[in-house]
Structure formats: structure tokens, C-alpha cells
Computed example of a mutant assay.
Amino acid sequence: MGYDISFHPVNMRLVEERVVPFLAARGGDDDLDDLIADAVRQAKVRFRANAWGLGTMKAYGREGFDSGLFIWGRPFFVTAEDPATVAETVVRYCDSHLDEVDDLARGQIALLDPTLAKYVEPDMNGTLPDDHLLAKGFRWKLDLLREAASAIRAGRTTIRNGDGDEISAASALTGNAHFVLIEFLAALLPGWIERGRVWPTELAEQAATEGNPPLSDNSALFGSLPTEFPSLDWPSNWTIPSNYAIGGYAAPSNIHPLRTWLSRNLDDLTAVGDQWDDRPYVSKALRKLDEALALAELTGSAFVEAAEIYIPGMGTIN
């Protein structure tokens, strides 16, 4: 199976102060309601922005329109050139309301071609679920892991999943916490989409780089969970081990050093593409990686690499 890869800024304040306590069955069941509501708002913003991207591709023509960057790459619809401006534009989308998206998108069209905007209409094929179903989609996995933690605290070994099957509470919590956490946080601060074996720890292994990248295992994403449940085994990864997994992690303090390492080793990392006869593809993946790191740096976030958070072929994009 191939890999649908993504590069994610991660708001560690939300991890440590909001989401992990919820997963640990602390506080109330409605403690994440405000974040769920924000995820619903952003889903509608994302849908409208992507519609503008698809409409622009139709008007512009595929020749010269980089759909792998503008639609199935960057979040929302962003055509700016430099990473800092890309990151700032993503933040503007994240903070916008639905009625502000059209002006934002038209501004991105103008960066491609100032004369093009009057010919573009958003491609509104497809529909979003209503707000209730969107909210349910964002929270059901969080609720399931919270139920698992509550069961463990009560001395129960199993819970029932959404299909009514009885499953191990401990395995549900420890085996899914990383993925569920990043999947949810990506609805609040999105990542970049790529495909194939082009995540940074993989490229670093294949390339003759100057020093190792400042990436570590992703145990920090568990927050207080290992302390709250010390009898459980909490596996962590330093790279992506399989599909539907979270890989290497960089703390907020390591984002600038990671960007510096990336810049210093760009030629060697890009040369990995020679092994796959696809050097330009790796070059674009590294561009997306640096843009994601620029957003992490702008927002004071951490960074992780992941697989199958987004699956464009199944309609889940950023």
C-alpha cells in the first residue's frame, strides 16, 4: 500500500492543556465543545477555499497550474511564493469566517494572474454534512478514547466500539492516542499533503546529510497520559512505521534548527530522488515540508510527520 503523507504543525498547548486531559477522562464530557465548534467552522472554510482552488484550475487550465501544490498540497487555497507568506495566509484562513473566504481566495487567484479572477467560479461539486454531523465526525474518536480511559480508571478491561464490538480499553487508548490526537488537531491547524516515501526521517535515512535532523520520537504527544496510566505500555515512533501512523517529532524549540538543517542539506535530500528517478518530486515534497515548518515557526507549534491523516482519494484533504 502507498503512503498518503502529511506534515503537521502541532499546537502543544492544546495537546497538554485541553486534548490530553480530555482523553485521560479528566474534566467534563463537554470540555472540548468550543474546539469542536471551531473545527466545524474551519471545515466549512476549507470546503469553500478548496472549491475556489478547483474552479481556478478549470479556468487556468492544468498547464502551468500546480495542482499538487495549490490543491493537493497546501491547506485551503494558497498560491503565494515564499514560505512566510504561505504560512501567514494559512493563518488568515484558519481565523476567517465563511463569508470572508471568497475575498481571500480571489486574492490568491490574483497572485497567479490579476486578470483571471473575473473568469473563476468556485467548483461546488459535492456537499458537506450539516454542522451536527460534522461535529459528530470530529469528536467520536475522542469520545471513544475518553471512554476507554474512564473504563481503565474504573477497573474495567473492555469497552464497546462504534460497531458494538467489545475491545480492549487499554489497546484502544494506547494504540490510537497519537493518531486521534493529530487527526483532531489538524482540523484546527492544518498540515500539508504529500504522497510516497518522502517524510523527513525517511529522506534523512536515505541521504548523506550533514548531521542528523533535530527530530525525535513522538512520545511528547502523549502528554501526561503515561503518568496517569503508568501500568500501560505507551509505544512511540521516531519515524513513520506503517500506514495510519504518526512519525518523527520536533519540539517548538527545534523548528528553526530543523529548517536550518533542511536548508543546509537540501541538495543531498533532493538527490534521494535520483534513487526513484523522480528528483523534482522530492524537491516539491521538501518545499511543502519547509512551508509546514514555517507555519509551525509562525505559530510557536511543534511538528510531526504522519501517514493517512489525509487521504485525498477518499475525499479527506486539508
Rank of each mutant, 00 (worst) to 15 (best):
G248M: 04
Q275T: 10
T127M: 10
R153P: 01
K118M: 06
I255V: 15
D278V: 04
P230D: 08
P83A: 11
E194R: 09
Y310I: 12
I36E: 00
L144A: 10
D267S: 15
L215F: 07
A84R: 08
N176E: 13
D38H: 02
G55S: 06
P129Y: 10
I5P: 01
V10C: 11
H178C: 03
K44N: 07
P226T: 13
L133C: 03
A59Y: 04
V272Q: 02
L133W: 08
D163W: 09
T79C: 14
P200M: 07
F303A: 03
L225F: 06
P230S: 05
E63N: 09
L181V: 07
W234I: 05
K44S: 04
S242H: 13
D274K: 07
G155D: 09
T115S: 15
M124S: 05
I71V: 15
D38A: 15
A37F: 01
N218Y: 03
I309T: 12
Q206W: 10
R48S: 07
A172M: 15
T85C: 12
V101F: 03
L35G: 07
S283Q: 13
R156N: 11
A110W: 01
F7K: 11
K44C: 05
G73K: 03
S263V: 12
R41M: 05
A169E: 06
A204S: 12
V19H: 02
D34F: 11
D165L: 15
D99R: 10
D29N: 09
S67E: 09
L221H: 05
A43L: 10
S67L: 10
D290V: 11
D290C: 08
L293K: 01
R146H: 10
E81C: 08
N11Q: 09
D82L: 13
A25M: 02
G61V: 14
L144N: 02
D4N: 14
P129K: 05
D123L: 11
S67P: 00
A207Y: 03
D277F: 11
G164V: 14
E205C: 03
L23V: 03
Y3Q: 11
A285Y: 02
P214T: 08
P312N: 05
S236Y: 07
S96F: 02
R279K: 14
A110R: 15
L112K: 11
F77A: 02
T157P: 00
A172F: 00
G313N: 12
A306F: 07
G73T: 09
V180M: 04
D163P: 00
H8F: 11
A25F: 09
E17Y: 08
R264G: 05
P226A: 07
T209E: 03
K284E: 14
L188Q: 06
F47M: 04
A294E: 06
V45Q: 00
D103A: 15
P114D: 12
P280G: 14
L104A: 03
Q108D: 01
K118C: 08
F77Q: 01
F184M: 06
G27D: 03
L116E: 02
A135T: 04
L225Q: 01
V91A: 13
L295R: 04
A306W: 04
R146E: 12
R160N: 04
